[in-house]
């Protein structure tokens, strides 16, 4: 079955060109993040002594490992076109529960499993409400945010120090890489990043996440398990929040109801700056990692600058959010529907 090949070839050339630009366009947001990152890194190296030191980059990961893990969970949610405002509170709740149970003498592995299950269950519950009662993710996770933060204060209104040996080891241990070093938390975050990337790119769950974000109605009509995957996504976000909470409790060696206040905003910002489109269906885990580095670089540059105060961080993040949302909008608009 061949059909007027000549005409087809000419038409195909046009389509090919169009297709190539579209394939590239898919990566525009992430590439934008990468370019931004290089520029920022260049500015840092050009202006500040010692900025080239690789340890500076590694420190970004050390200081933001928990945020990275939380942002990975957020990436899943945003890819389906949802949002999870509860992450910061779940992180705080995790640190509180860890601190209290450890102080009651629970063994460290049991504590870790307990909080991870707790985070997942919270996420699962929110996912069920969003899917089965057709409530807006925004409002359900807002309730989850209130709930988890309120539970923190039910446990204790003040900070609880953690002196469990496992926690102390995990918090103080440095793993050398050449002449530099990282913490176990970075390794854990890296493992989660790799797993998340593989799940999103090469499993049915991951591809269904993209399908739902692309067009939930189509996904349903194509017979995909939309309900299961949507609930799974919030469960994953809950799990990641709990994991991030554990990393934060290593980092801070304490449980505090005031931990991670506003972290949901940082996580959303990292995901968006990392090129994931807020309406869902397009974005990559690697983008989120880049987004975290960008946030970290902003802080680092501001620290190196010395004269710039910390609040510029927020202004810069806001400006970047604006830029990237605009960039996404132009990209989405040009895509034929």
């Amino acid at each position: 079955m061949t059909i007027d090949l000549e005409a087809e070839t000419a038409a195909e050339a046009v389509i090919d060109r169009k297709r190539r630009t579209l394939t590239i366009r898919k990566y525009v947001p992430v590439l934008g993040t990468l370019v931004l990152l290089c520029i920022m890194y260049g500015i840092g190296i050009a202006n500040y002594e010692n900025f080239y030191n690789t340890q500076i980059l590694l420190n970004i990961f050390i200081d933001n490992a928990f945020l990275l893990v939380v942002a990975i969970g957020m990436t899943f949610v945003i890819l389906t076109g949802g949002i999870d405002l509860s992450v910061g509170s779940v992180v705080a709740l995790t640190t509180m529960v860890s601190a209290v149970t450890l102080n009651h003498g629970w063994p460290a592995p049991l504590v870790m499993i307990t909080v991870l299950v707790m985070g997942s269950v919270l996420g699962f519950g929110m996912g069920c409400m969003i899917h089965y009662f057709e409530l807006q993710p925004f409002i359900v996770t807002l309730a989850g945010m209130f709930l988890a933060r309120g539970l923190c204060y039910v446990i204790s209104t003040s900070s609880i120090p953690i002196d469990d040996p496992t926690w102390i080891t995990l918090s103080q241990k440095r793993i050398p890489i050449g002449s530099f070093s990282i913490t176990p938390s970075v390794i854990i975050a890296a493992i989660i990043v790799v797993i998340a990337a593989v799940v999103l790119a090469w499993t049915r769950l991951g591809r269904t996440v993209y399908a739902i974000g692309g067009n939930q109605q189509s996904a349903t009509l194509m017979g995909l398990p939309v309900a299961r995957v949507k609930i799974a996504v919030y469960t994953i976000s809950g799990f990641c929040s709990a994991a991030g909470g554990l990393l934060l409790s290593f980092y801070m060696s304490s449980g505090d109801p005031l931990h991670a206040v506003g972290m949901e905003l940082d996580a959303i910002a990292a995901v968006v700056i990392g090129g994931t489109i807020l309406t869902g269906g397009s974005g990559y885990v690697v983008g989120t990692v880049l987004g975290i580095i960008v946030l970290g670089l902003i802080q680092t540059i501001i620290t190196f600058q010395g004269t710039l105060s910390s609040w510029w961080t927020k202004i810069f993040i806001g400006a970047l959010l604006f830029l990237f949302v605009l960039l996404q909008r132009t990209v989405v608009r040009r895509t034929p529907s």
Partner: peptide
């Protein structure tokens, strides 16, 4: 503790949203 009001608010939010939800 004053901060636990958030807990009550969470319950109120959920209750009201459920009442409003046609599903």
């Amino acid at each position: 503790p004053a901060q636990t009001t958030q807990l009550f608010k969470a319950i109120v939010v959920i209750a009201i949203c459920l009442i409003q939800s046609p599903a």
